[in-house]
Amino acid sequence: MLKLDHFEVAVLFALCASAVLGVVTKRTDADRLRYGLVCFGYFILAIFGIGWFMRILHG
C-alpha cells in the first residue's frame, strides 16, 4: 500500500489537475503550458497558505 503524506498527495493532485486544466482551456500550446504552470503555482501557493493558516489556527 502506497503511503504518502498530506503534502505529497496535494502536490501530486496539483500536478495532475493543472496538466488537464492547461490542456483543455487555452488555444495555443504556449498558452496551455503557461496556464498549466500558473495553475500549479496557485495550487502550491494555496497548499502553503492553508497549511500555515491551519498551523496558526491550532497554535
Partner: peptide
C-alpha cells in the same frame, strides 16, 4: 493533448 489527459487520469487513478 490526448497523451497529457491519458497520463494525468491514469496516474491519478493508479495513485
Amino acid at each position: 493533448r490526448a497523451a497529457v489527459i491519458f497520463c494525468a487520469v491514469v496516474v491519478a487513478f493508479t495513485i
